[in-house]
């Protein structure tokens, strides 16, 4: 039996209190299985980023449960959440966020080193991840020696280095042209086809179409979903062991 990599169970997030309270998310429930890429769409202010922040443990739900790979964040200490985030969750942002003074391989190994891994082992794992994603030739380049698309692919490698099998991507193609954006999505799609679970926030329908499922948010509520394409059992069967 396989379990969802990510569970949002009746999650609500309210900012502020009293008359000025703003309900950013209201009773959102969403599962992401291993091997599944789910896109989140919706107008500005619909709660997309809040959902992603909660899913990654960067923000705390006012009510409801957030479960990452079986660990219920709502029952964990901030320190425990930080550790879980470092070890299990990868983030990809619109502006890549690579450190300019480090090479691609060093950028990818950094999360492991910050998590206490020996530098030698961390760099070995980083190079393995870059190899896996056909990015070997970029390993020794600095960010300013790479195109935007190359930097974003390295950022995805960084998000997935080591044991992390959940990637949360916030408009990862926002700064890229159509072709390069598609290359980045292809890489993300391939990782998910290999068993990684992905949550992709985008406002581009063409990019959301790479996902297995699209959920629409409006005013903090999921108003519609396009899938999944098959039943939950189909999805489980399709996911790599």
């Amino acid at each position: 039996m396989r379990y969802p990599s990510l569970i949002l169970d009746d999650v609500t997030r309210v900012h502020g209190s009293g008359e000025t309270a703003v309900r950013a998310l209201a009773g959102v429930s969403l599962d992401v299985m291993p091997g599944e890429l789910v896109a989140v769409m919706g107008p500005s202010g619909s709660g997309k980023s809040t959902l992603l922040n909660l899913a990654g443990g960067l923000d705390k739900a006012t009510s409801g449960r957030v479960v990452i790979e079986g660990e219920d964040l709502t029952k964990m200490t901030p320190k425990g959440i930080a550790q879980l985030r470092r070890q299990r969750v990868g983030f990809v942002f619109q502006d890549y966020n690579l450190i300019p003074s480090l090479t691609a391989a060093e950028n990818v190994s950094l999360p492991l080193e910050l998590d206490g891994e020996r530098p030698r082992k961390a760099r070995l794992l980083a190079r393995q991840t870059l190899d896996l994603m056909d990015l070997r030739e970029l390993a020794d380049r600095f960010p300013d020696q790479m195109s935007g698309g190359q930097q974003q692919r390295v950022a995805i490698a960084r998000a997935l280095v080591g044991t992390r099998r959940l990637v949360l991507a916030d408009e990862p193609t926002g700064a890229l042209d159509t072709h390069t954006g598609e290359e980045v999505l292809r890489v993300l799609r391939e990782r998910c086809d290999d068993g990684v679970a992905g949550l992709l926030v985008t406002h581009e329908a063409r990019h959301a179409a790479w996902a297995d499922r699209v959920v629409f948010l409006r005013d903090g509520v999921i108003v519609d979903s396009t899938g999944p394409a098959g039943s939950a059992e189909d999805l489980l069967d399709a996911a790599p062991a």
Partner: peptide, 12 residues
Amino acid sequence: RTATLKHLHDLT
């Protein structure tokens, strides 16, 4: 929109 997105997904 849901139907068109499904179509877009199939085309992709």
